[in-house]
């Protein structure tokens, strides 16, 4: 027992890496979430084109379309996040293994972060080609920073809500209705930050307060989710 504890203390990141590698391997062998999210994003851009009746968008409208699409695509990934664990008994395995339970949270959060980043690598260029009017180049570095912060928010809140919803009767209903209101502050900050980046003659960097707000959101919910995740696995 003490040897296990010592081993666990010595390399706290190893279980996380093992769990993360398993998730990435699963997604690579049998791609499921990422293709669905990419297809969903592009379909949504097409829908926005017809729904808004516009060939080109810019400024705050562009920021809204892009971020809301990413948000909804993330919901798909969040819904699938723990399905393998739920169906194949992975939860019991994690509980029985002599590892810290938050390793599962860290692994799932990181996996979701990577999935979202991969989706955006395809979806943002597609958005720039299909819908965006002005050139995206001048605001690209700031856009990458903002989206990274958004992904962080999505993955910490997403991993927590996914764990919360996986053992309810109506997982696919609970995930969106809980996640979307929770993400409103992050969306406010991200949309305000992206609006000048996607405008025709906008600034190359958004006002610092929006990035700070996003950072604060990431910090608060990251720490909070980390603190309470344990209680979702206790059985």
């Amino acid at each position: 027992m003490s040897r296990d504890a010592a081993r666990r203390d010595a390399k706290p990141m190893r279980p996380t890496m093992a769990l993360l590698r398993k998730d990435l391997l699963l997604e690579r062998r049998a791609p499921e979430s990422i293709p669905a999210m990419v297809l969903f994003s592009i379909t949504t851009f097409v829908l926005f084109h017809f729904g808004l009746g516009r060939d080109e968008v810019d400024g705050s409208l562009a920021a809204g379309v892009l971020l809301v699409t990413i948000l909804f695509a993330a919901i798909l990934g969040i819904n699938r996040l723990f399905v393998a664990e739920h169906e194949e008994g992975g939860f019991d395995a994690v509980l029985m293994a002599p590892i810290d339970r938050t390793a599962l949270f860290l692994a799932k959060g990181t996996a979701l972060f990577l999935f979202l980043t991969l989706v955006e690598v395809v979806a943002v260029p597609a958005f720039a080609i299909l819908l965006l009017g002005p050139s995206p180049w001048h605001g690209l570095p700031a856009l990458i920073v903002t989206l990274a912060l958004v992904n962080l928010a999505l993955s910490s809140v997403g991993a927590l809500v996914a764990a919360l919803a996986i053992r309810t009767r109506s997982r696919d209903l609970i995930v969106p209705i809980v996640t979307l209101p929770l993400l409103v502050p992050a969306l406010i900050a991200a949309a305000r930050a992206c609006a000048p980046l996607l405008a025709a003659h906008g600034d190359a960097w958004p006002a610092a307060k929006w990035l700070l707000m996003l950072g604060l959101y990431d910090l608060v919910f990251g720490l909070l989710a980390y603190a309470v995740f344990d209680f979702l696995l206790e059985d």
Binding site: V184, P185, I188, A189, K209, M213, L216, Y217, V220
Partner: peptide, 8 residues
């Protein structure tokens, strides 16, 4: 947190 964001 939400109050802060909306007020901003």
């Amino acid at each position: 947190l939400n109050f802060m964001a909306v007020r901003m």
